[in-house]
């Protein structure tokens, strides 16, 4: 260690230039973040200021305009599930205890869809013919966690 000058790491040096590479990185980063947050806000509130409508509200609001997506939440009406043999299209009714909404979904449905306790959230469009065509299905899990009965 015969050298007399020690290299001061860059972090300890005072910032001399106004347009340093640090500053540029920061600006770019911050703009990306603000842009992302704005995008989220747009995504989250697009089409509705609530995350989902109830069945009664959905029927009141009526058909969804083109290019808009809404969500409706309810329970699977008993005995309403119907899927033709070999078909990927499922038809069923959603209910909030009072009003009933006819719905259709193309594709896979998660297991919990068929559970009695599940609240189902459909994401899609309410068509003028009275059927809510859903593109996405989210099954809201029950909030109470109960141990399953030990069998045998």
């Amino acid at each position: 260690m015969s050298q007399t000058d020690t290299t001061i790491p860059e972090s300890a040096q005072p910032q001399t230039s106004l347009v340093s590479s640090h500053r540029v990185k920061l600006l770019v980063g911050l703009m990306a973040i603000v842009g992302a947050l704005g995008f989220f806000a747009f995504q989250a509130f697009e089409g509705a200021t609530v995350y989902y409508y109830t069945v009664a509200e959905m029927k009141e609001i009526g058909p969804t305009p083109e290019n808009r997506t809404v969500r409706v939440s309810g329970k699977l009406a008993a005995d309403s599930f119907h899927r033709a043999e070999g078909s990927t299209l499922a038809e069923f009714d959603l209910t909030d205890g009072g009003a009933i909404l006819a719905a259709a979904h193309e594709g896979v449905l998660p297991d919990l869809f068929f559970n009695d306790h599940s609240e189902i959230i459909l994401e899609g469009r309410y068509h003028a013919d009275g059927v809510f065509v859903s593109e996405n299905v989210i099954v809201k899990c029950p909030s109470k966690y109960i141990a399953e009965e030990e069998s045998g």
Binding site: F40, Q43, A44, Y51, V108, L109, P110, D111, L112, E123, N136, V137, I138, V139, K140, C141
Partner: peptide, 10 residues
């Protein structure tokens, strides 16, 4: 596996 989606904007 439970909801059916990786993400949602709730």
């Amino acid at each position: 596996p439970v909801w059916g989606v990786w993400w949602t904007w709730d």
